[in-house]
């Protein structure tokens, strides 16, 4: 494979971006209610200014329910894949992902606390999710710090400890909930994009874009970090600073995703892997590609989740797991 150039990156990203746009448009034609395709396309093309013959209900379904949900899926998928790519580069481990380090569980615990103790107040949910993600990152980082700094082995070990601890906390709090809450919380825990907090959508999208951009802007440093922290240091990378940036940005990305939609698994693991396999390990191309690919993956998975047993719904995390796990096993064999 040739080395990555600006041209190659722009072309790949433009292609992926085009596919993503196509997916957004085409998936918005699918749902538990049938919408007339031509009229819907016309309305989408007019960006909502014209109803093109859709009834008010159909228009609302398309623009108030489906499109925001698809965009949220894109934001969540993009965030998780970007965070995964960042962790894999930083920890020099192609199998690292947000869950491994307990970040998602931290965000989930934060959300649970907001549900159980501040149930009525909406904005506590994302706030406590971020706090949970940061707290988990902090805990992992402190646990992993040894004399030689936070080596990947120690980080992963610390991550596993934090993850399992937080998992038991989640199980414990779940047992304190009553049956109704448990049912809806369990669903959310597996990834649920049906939440209608539209106010948070622009925030989620902004975070995804800013996060992906920030990590891409550190891509060259990450390329060197991927081949060894000591070597990266020798070659001029400010290892401590880059590590902190990646951790913070990735926590923000994961926290925002979990707050919006619970834990959607396998995206942060499988998508960056696929991106690297097809485009090379250079982060300048694989991070933006992972972001776009992650968005695509979750949009498709969510469309399956909301149409396959319509009018009922499955949690999107179940679909990403059903697709992601076999895919991952296949990838493992290739590596």
């Amino acid at each position: 494979m040739n080395r990555v150039t600006l041209r190659k990156t722009l072309i790949s990203c433009a292609l992926l971006g085009a596919v993503l746009l196509l997916a957004i448009v085409s998936m918005s034609l699918l749902g538990s209610e049938r919408l007339p395709a031509r009229a819907s396309l016309c309305a989408l093309a007019s960006l909502g200014s014209s109803a093109c013959g859709l009834t008010q209900d159909q228009f609302d379904i398309l623009f108030q329910i489906r499109l925001p949900r698809i965009l949220l899926a894109a934001a969540v998928g993009g965030s998780l894949a970007t965070a995964g790519a960042g962790y894999q580069a930083l920890l020099r481990n192609p199998l690292a992902e947000p869950y491994l380090l307990g970040i998602s569980n931290g965000a989930a615990v934060g959300t649970m606390i907001s549900l159980v103790f501040f149930g009525a107040i909406e904005w506590t949910r994302p706030l406590l999710a971020f706090s949970g993600a940061f707290a988990a990152t902090f805990a992992v980082y402190r646990l992993a710090r040894g004399r030689a700094g936070a080596t990947p082995e120690r980080l992963i070990l610390a991550g596993v400890i934090v993850t399992t601890f937080l998992s038991s906390v989640i199980v414990f709090v779940t047992t304190l909930m009553d049956a109704t809450r448990i049912r809806s919380f369990t669903f959310w825990l597996l990834g649920d994009l049906s939440g209608s907090s539209k106010a948070l959508l622009p925030v989620a999208i902004t975070i995804t874009i800013l996060g992906a951009l920030t990590l891409t802007l550190h891509a060259r440093s990450l390329n060197l970090l991927m081949l060894g922290e000591r070597d990266a240091f020798d070659l001029g990378v400010e290892v401590g600073r880059v590590r902190m940036v990646v951790f913070l940005v990735a926590s923000l990305l994961v926290g925002s995703s979990v707050a919006a939609s619970g834990s959607v698994g396998y995206v942060g693991l499988v998508v960056p892997h696929l991106a690297r396999l097809s485009l090379g390990s250079d982060n300048r191309i694989s991070i933006p590609a992972a972001a776009l690919g992650g968005a695509l993956f979750v949009i498709v998975a969510d469309t399956v989740a909301r149409t396959i047993i319509a009018p009922r719904e499955l949690p999107v995390g179940a679909i990403t797991a059903l697709i992601g796990a076999p895919l991952f096993i296949y990838l493992l064999k290739r590596v």
Binding site: E33, A310, E313
Partner: peptide, 15 residues
Amino acid sequence: VPGAWPKYSNESALA
């Protein structure tokens, strides 16, 4: 709708 307590699609509820 099959089942006792299904998770329902927002679209279908609206429609």
